[in-house]
Design a binder for these strands. Structure first.
Lengths: 232, 232
DNA sequence: TGGCCAATATTGTTGAACAATCTGTGATTC
DNA sequence: GAATCACAGATTGTTCAACAATATTGGCCA
């Protein structure tokens, strides 16, 4: 039938496929937070029926990647102050828990070290995106210590929401460079088996990161409301 | 959480409505684990279109209340050994984390005490379902200490899955009476501010509960395969 | 009995239609 | 001139009927 615009979408599971396409585009910042996903244009663009698209929407709503307002449509989620607080509430629980009670095999520790090295290289070469990636990878790997797919999934969702937060900020300053050394320390402590100290340090790190992010976000919101005032 | 009267489908949000109806029926054990949810009969029974029902299905799949096998249909989830392990992997992380780092206000402590009292009364009157309810309520309340809606939601899903496990067991012996005293101790420790000890005890409790549940489940599976053999 | 194949049933997806709701525009009124 | 209201257009929510693709069933044959 109609081969979708962007390439090879076979008869695997159209719904899941569409959901994945949208997920990817949102994560890439191609679809910016707050923007509306109108059904008809998207149907045409993706080459699927409206019904299938709506089913994909329900999937993404369940992942809170997207927000549905009844009779108004679905919008790319645009996390604000409260969402950021919630993100850090989650992280402050599951990350230190993983550090305290996760399974620390030598291979896993090697993996963590590889990631922090990547982060250091990214910092040295001044690549902010690479640093962000490495940072997220590290914290994802920390949660993976739990061995729980559900917690890993929750963390993935949280990290995806974090990316949305960064996308919604016009100026994303080097939010991550400060924290590379902290991550090095964290992995070092894990290697040394100092779980208690690692967990404490991690909680302190998360507190600071949240505070800093909230400041940036507040400034961003002020800037935005000011622009709105100027425009109106 | 308002349970809508089982009447005619209103023009509110049919999809969400249907999802909630199915959720309730599954939680009540009306739809037993492993049973197939055929589209046409359900459409007729619920008075909705096949498309709407399928959309409700995707919601429930996202909550892993239900399993979808491509081209075969959706089935009520029937958690087995691996799912139980995963349940306790999650609980062993987030419950002790909540105990260690959650916010302990006097009101919340009062609430916890009310729940354990309810559990004690249920044990005294020998009501297993009431005991199970109180037990789940307590552990839900513990996770609520985190203040995080996401973690609360994850815990709710986990507890719902636990109910499915119990539903799938023909004989559900007094799995909970052993643990009432432990919960009393837990709340007492929280009241005393002995978080470290509370977390330790909670982890030990979860280990034991998991082991016992796995034994029951193993016996159940043996019984079942034996019956299958006898029948075939 | 055991395996193969066609007939049947079920799922996955589409397209068009309709009711319900929202949005924006212009007319009316003060 | 600003606020209010009504109406037409657009969008969403849901249904129905159809079709392709896949699974299941039953019969047939060896």
């Amino acid at each position: 039938m109609n081969t979708p615009a962007d390439g090879t979408a076979e008869h695997a599971h159209t719904t899941a496929w569409i959901a994945s396409v949208l997920r990817t585009r949102i994560a890439a910042g191609e679809l910016t937070p707050g923007s509306k996903l109108s059904e008809e244009p998207l149907c045409a663009a993706l080459g699927v029926s409206r019904n299938t698209l709506r089913q994909a929407f329900t999937t993404l709503v369940g992942e809170s990647i997207v927000t549905r307002i009844p009779n108004r449509g679905v919008f790319v989620a645009s996390p604000g102050v409260e969402e950021v607080r919630e993100i850090y509430r989650v992280r402050r629980m599951i990350e230190p828990a993983a550090v305290l009670w996760g399974e620390l095999t030598p291979q896993v520790l090697d993996g963590l070290e590889t990631i922090v090295e990547r982060a250091q290289q990214a910092r040295d070469s001044g690549s902010v995106p690479a640093m962000a990636d490495a940072n997220q990878a590290l914290h994802g790997a920390v949660v993976a210590l739990t061995g729980s797919a559900s917690l890993q999934e929750l963390m993935d969702r949280v990290l995806a929401e974090m990316r949305l937060v960064f996308h919604s900020m016009a100026s994303a300053p080097d939010f991550h460079s400060h924290y590379v050394d902290r991550n090095v320390t964290l992995v070092k402590q894990l290697r040394a088996g100092e779980r208690q100290e690692a967990a404490e340090g991690l909680r302190a790190y998360l507190d600071e990161a949240e505070a800093e992010l909230l400041v940036h976000l507040g400034a961003e919101q002020d800037r935005r409301s000011e622009m709105r005032q100027r425009a109106g």
